[in-house]
Computed example of a mutant assay.
Amino acid sequence: MSIHDAKVIDIHAHAVLEETFGTAGAYGPELYDDADGTPIFRIGGYRLRGVRYRGSPFMDPDLRIAAMDRSGIDWQLLSPNPLTYFHYIPAAEATSFCRRHNDALAALVARYPDRLGAAAALPMQDIDAAIAELRRAVGELGMRAAYIGTDGIRGLDDPEMDAFYEAVTALDVPLFLHPAPAGIDGPKASAAMSRYELDITTGFTMQETLALATLVYGGVLHRHPTLDICISHGGGAIALLWGRLEHAAHKRRWAPDHLKADGAFAAELQRIWYDIHVHDDRAVDLLVERVGTERLVYGTNFSGWDAPERFESPRCDAPLADNARRLLRA
Rank of each mutant, 00 (worst) to 15 (best):
180 A>V: 01
180 A>F: 09
181 P>M: 01
182 A>D: 00
182 A>P: 08
183 G>Q: 03
183 G>N: 03
183 G>F: 04
184 I>H: 11
184 I>Y: 01
185 D>A: 06
185 D>P: 03
185 D>K: 10
186 G>I: 06
186 G>H: 05
187 P>H: 14
187 P>W: 10
188 K>V: 01
188 K>P: 00
189 A>Y: 00
189 A>R: 08
190 S>N: 14
190 S>L: 14
191 A>M: 12
192 A>R: 13
193 M>A: 12
193 M>L: 14
193 M>N: 03
194 S>H: 07
197 E>W: 05
197 E>F: 10
197 E>C: 02
198 L>N: 09
198 L>Q: 10
199 D>C: 04
200 I>K: 02
200 I>A: 10
201 T>G: 11
202 T>I: 13
203 G>K: 06
204 F>H: 13
204 F>V: 07
205 T>E: 01
205 T>I: 12
205 T>D: 01
205 T>K: 10
206 M>Y: 09
207 Q>F: 05
207 Q>Y: 00
208 E>A: 13
208 E>K: 07
209 T>L: 03
209 T>V: 11
210 L>W: 10
211 A>C: 03
211 A>Y: 03
212 L>N: 03
212 L>R: 04
213 A>Y: 02
213 A>P: 02
213 A>M: 13
213 A>D: 06
213 A>R: 07
214 T>H: 01
215 L>W: 04
215 L>A: 00
216 V>Y: 05
217 Y>M: 14
217 Y>R: 13
218 G>I: 05
219 G>C: 04
220 V>Y: 02
221 L>E: 05
221 L>I: 09
222 H>G: 01
223 R>P: 01
223 R>D: 04
224 H>N: 15
224 H>Q: 12
224 H>P: 02
225 P>L: 09
225 P>S: 13
227 L>W: 07
227 L>D: 08
227 L>P: 06
227 L>I: 12
227 L>V: 14
228 D>T: 15
228 D>P: 04
229 I>S: 07
229 I>P: 05
230 C>Q: 14
230 C>R: 04
230 C>V: 15
231 I>L: 15
231 I>W: 02
231 I>P: 07
231 I>V: 15
232 S>N: 14
232 S>Q: 13
232 S>P: 02
232 S>T: 15
232 S>C: 15
232 S>E: 06
232 S>A: 15
233 H>C: 10
234 G>A: 09
234 G>D: 10
235 G>P: 08
236 G>S: 14
236 G>V: 10
236 G>P: 09
236 G>Y: 12
